[in-house]
Amino acid sequence: MASKVPVKSILKQKQPADIPTEADRNRRNLAIALHHANLIQAQKDIQAQILLCIEKLLDLPTGSEPTPDEARSFASLVYNFQPSDLDALVEERNIEGKCGYTLCPNSPRSRSIGANASWKLSSAAVDYCSDICARKNLYVKTQLGEIPAWQREPGIQAPIVLHEDDQPKSEKTAAVQSRKPVWKKTAADDKDLAMERGETPNGFRPKQVMTDMIVEKSTTTPRKTKVAFKEPNASHTAIEGYEPKSAVRNDEGDEDTDDDT
């Protein structure tokens, strides 16, 4: 007789699953719950911080001119904002009677122009003292991240750069700029350029480049119109000397009949 082959099941072997104990499950649930609770808490913290930032930015600038410190703090405080938060800031500043752009001490046009402002200007322009401020604010707004601050990966959001006019100058560069001699300009003025071209300032037309070759322009005579105005034989149907074609044909017919009679 053939030797006995051990019977092997063709069904899938069941893996001995390690059943989690009650305590294990509880611990995992607790960890998950804590994780989510911490996420929500972080979100609330950042929202509260943004509100605090809005409150701080409401009072800027303290003087008539924004100081470099204030400009720097504006750029840093606004870092966590979403574009909608900046809109909220503009709204709040308007209620306080200040221009929507944080570094501007003037009052918005909704106050300076009065009740008529809303139909003289677009609704967004009313919140600022001038179009320049509106543009500067837009410059900042476009840099803000659409993703809320609590979902941002660290390092993705670039630091906010202010508009060139408001960029805080460090004391060193400000000093260097003030020491710069007045006569040294970046662009030469008209006088220098004229000298370079060899024109004398006392010349006949000093600002224009002179050439000694004279080129005759080709003259064009006005084209003669076919029908002269007030021609002696113009009929009563002519409009400013022009005879409409249909009218001409009719006239000819009329003339024929006239001739017959």
């Binding site: 509100l51 409150e55 409401l58 709040e92 308007n94 209620i95 306080e96």
Partner: peptide
Amino acid sequence: PNLGVKGLK
């Protein structure tokens, strides 16, 4: 007519 953060604060 307008109520902002300051008013509520």
